[in-house]
């Protein structure tokens, strides 16, 4: 789904990582590991295609991707329903019912029409993650998806990841928390470049 060769990145005169080789197949779950400042977010942005310059190596993308970054992309002036409808506007054909069902899946039922600025950071995050219940993109690049989410939310998210993987999707994520998905997990260590 995704192939990266000889990826290296230098920031401010420091080599963050080098020689990263990654080949992501269908049904694979990869967790990128590294300390704060190791370049996890930078790697994801390179793989997503947001960073186009300033790194060495090459990235080939074979399938549509969904990238969810640190920022929730939620507009305070729009309701969760409007926010989510815009988030998925790039993909064709989602009914209003499907959008409401996705919001219900992340426990935002009853909040669909509340202006988002009245919601908490965790709820913004949930609006963002509701995309995972709609998108048809086979490859997900998730940057710290568990941040600001409570325990039940994490369980919902892990169940969704598992379902996606079992249907042949691929997931590459960064997380400081252990990922409790009953599924074989590959770890990519940014410091050494080892994938195991």
């Amino acid at each position: 789904m995704l192939r990266a060769r000889e990826l290296g990145l230098e920031r401010g005169g420091r080599q963050l990582f080098s020689g990263i080789e990654l080949e992501l197949e269908r049904g694979q779950l990869v967790q990128v590991e590294g300390a704060n400042g190791a370049g996890k977010t930078s790697l994801l942005r390179i793989l997503a295609g947001l960073s186009r310059y300033g790194f060495s190596g090459s990235v080939e993308r074979f399938t549509p991707q969904l990238f969810l970054g640190h920022q929730s992309a939620v507009k305070g002036l729009l309701t969760p329903r409007e926010n989510l409808a815009w988030h998925v506007a790039g993909e064709a054909g989602f009914s209003a019912e499907a959008i409401d069902a996705a919001l219900a899946a992340v426990n935002l039922y009853g909040y669909e029409d509340v202006p988002s600025h009245a919601l908490s950071a965790g709820q913004h995050r949930r609006v963002n993650l509701a995309r995972l219940f709609l998108t048809r993109a086979p490859l997900w690049l998730l940057d710290e998806p568990f941040t600001a989410i409570d325990r039940t939310g994490v369980a919902v998210l892990e169940a969704r990841l598992l379902a996606h993987l079992q249907h042949g999707g691929g997931v590459l994520l960064t997380s400081h928390q252990p990922v409790a998905v009953a599924y074989p997990l590959l770890r990519l260590d940014l410091a050494t470049g080892a994938l195991q």
Binding site: P64, K75, L77, L78, E82, W86, A89, G90, E91, A92, G93, R136, A137, P138
Partner: peptide
């Protein structure tokens, strides 16, 4: 994966921006 048409997408983008503008 099917993606929305560029025209439809732009229409929604304009509408979103107008809604945001009118709410402020």
């Amino acid at each position: 994966m099917t993606s929305a048409s560029a025209a439809g997408f732009c229409f929604r983008l304009v509408r979103r921006q107008l809604v945001l503008g009118l709410r402020r």
